[in-house]
Design a protein around this nucleic acid. Structure first.
Lengths: 332, 332
DNA sequence: GGGCAGTTCGTGAACGTTCACGGGAGCGTT
DNA sequence: AACGCTCCCGTGAACGTTCACGAACTGCCC
């Protein structure tokens, strides 16, 4: 009966018995503590290696509460924007000695739900992009600090890292207008029924120049390169007179760039393109992308730092703002 | 003295006392178990919310050993190659219900060391890219399953996910030769003193065509876009007669592409460029990059699956191979 | 030889949760 | 009224580690 049972975990007791010492001595040896003789320490270490001993991170974490772990949730790690945000978050976490568990929800509401259900039991704080309502989020993350990126929380339950691109968009439109553009379209995102705040900035900036915007020049695009291309094709087929487009983000803009090339349009001569985000990727395409840029990496870093403030109880949930500014390159 | 002491953690006991029940009943309420009355369950839930109770993941993990966590180590998450690998690893982990802790070592040996030192206490298995010797790795990850990606382990201590690009490179060179190219250069990496295995594949393929390769046509490049550009500039200044280049990877190749453009060279008419990896990024540049492609995402996925085999004890450390094949696009 | 300091080691307790088991209350059946 | 069943709920133990404390031993000095 005792012959071949479950391969039970090898514990600190086993090592102690094997080395002929007590738990505490084993603990001392493994953690480089004082109050232990050199030879016994070596004996314990040998025994541990011999048995393949590996301390339980749960038991250890239970008694000494040092390590903190933050969960980072992104809709799509392959989207370079989120990659940059993640990179910033990782760096900020590292400098704090924090660990980061990353979850890619594949832009899927169900997977986001599944993630939220399991994440609570794994991390000390949550940071990232969510599509669900604040009520849902609150219900699914009981008591855990949550920092929403790129989204202004309505309740003081959450912290938020917001983006203020109004001035940057104004710069961009002013630039386009100064170059003689008047028929300017926009490729908005298509994730929500209502228009994005960036579209509002766009319309406001256009209004300041007294330029009316035909509603048909506002198109929606899926947040992929292909989506941007398809949206530009739609826009141009309905409004061939457009001479410039402002895109919801760089990914869409780059798709538009590629589609314009396939159309035989020269950029920026025939069509000017302005993106949003200022991704590093924008400098790799031909022509290089003009964009209302923000510091994407600090977006992730700020989120982690805000999370740190929340877990230490140093502050109540608050709002931080990252400003965007026009980065002029070749495409406009 | 008891007025304002440490903000001691609120435990399941506190909730139990507040709700007038026992620990076990609280546990039942929180974990949606049976054997509990609806009204008391609600009362417990209210009390828990009231007190801001949050179960300790350590205590929970200690008693029921279900959750597994794998550590993913990459040199640079902003490098799209590693992003794709990470994405594949995340997906494989998700389908297993595993959690992934991501570490970016910033291509720095010291940070890699620091990561290895803390990672052992945090994860059940380690997967990723390492620069240190196998002896160092073994010493720093006592008893933990480790899967090395893109590197063939020499000892049976580690599993490895290797890359076999020999046939793919042969295809690429055959293609170039069939297009009349004979003076072909290579932009190798510069991370190690010795030439890469990909360079050996390159030389072997060239030899099969009976084409000698002038050693000066083998240049080294830093693994960035700029590094690729600089390396091409070096190569061309010394050997302006080169008509085609094979790059260690796509990042370097894309840098070369951009540099060629700046030189006023038309690609592929004046200079053909072939990369390695087959990144999605390669289809965004102009002209689209021809590359010896491999399934980068499955690289990460396979690593996680191998890790799963190791932690369950279902298998000894082994070697898996991912094959690369030529993806013909515009740049060659 | 007693006192004292320093070094090395072991024992109970604690961390916070879940599991296994047992027990009481309520209700229906015979 | 005794029995059995179902539904709730609580108590001891266990998970594996570290912390606080005390004890044993050694060597030294007076």
């Amino acid at each position: 009966m005792s012959s071949s049972t479950e391969p039970r975990r090898v514990t600190i007791h086993d090592v102690a018995r094997s080395a002929g010492v007590s738990r505490q001595t084993v603990s001392r040896a493994l953690n480089d503590k004082a109050e232990i003789d050199g030879s016994t320490k070596q004996r314990v270490l040998d025994a541990a290696r011999e048995l393949g001993y590996r301390p339980s991170r749960f038991a250890r974490g239970l008694v000494r509460q040092d390590t903190t772990t933050v969960g980072l949730v992104v809709p799509d790690l392959l989207n370079p924007f989120f990659t940059e945000v993640a990179s910033g978050a990782l760096e900020a976490a590292r400098s704090r000695g924090w660990h980061v568990v990353v979850y890619d929800t594949a832009d899927d509401l169900d997977q986001e739900l599944a993630t939220l259900q399991v994440i609570g039991a794994q991390v000390d704080a949550v940071v990232g992009y969510f599509s669900r309502s604040e009520e849902d989020l609150d219900r699914l993350t009981p008591g855990i600090p949550v920092v929403l990126i790129g989204r202004e929380p309505r309740t003081p339950r959450f912290s938020g890292i917001g983006i203020d691109g109004e001035e940057g968009v104004r710069e961009a439109i002013s630039h386009l207008v100064s170059r003689g553009h008047r028929r300017i379209g926009m490729l908005d995102h298509d994730r929500r029924p209502e228009p994005s705040i960036r579209q509002q900035w766009f319309l406001r900036a256009m209004a300041e120049h007294g330029i009316p915007v035909h509603p048909g020049r506002l198109t929606r695009a899926a947040q992929t390169i292909d989506g941007g291309g398809a949206a530009l094709a739609t826009l141009l087929s309905a409004h061939p007179d457009v001479t410039a487009v402002f895109a919801f983000n760089d990914v869409i803009a780059i798709g538009a760039l590629r589609e314009a090339r396939r159309f035989g349009l020269r950029v920026p001569a025939d069509l000017a393109v302005v993106g949003f985000d200022g991704l590093a990727l924008g400098t790799l395409v031909e022509p290089e992308l003009t964009s209302v840029a923000l510091d994407t990496r600090s977006l992730g870093a700020l989120a982690v730092e805000e999370a740190a403030r929340l877990v230490t109880g140093a502050a109540e949930p608050g709002r931080l703002i990252v400003r965007a500014a026009l980065h002029l390159r070749e495409s406009a």
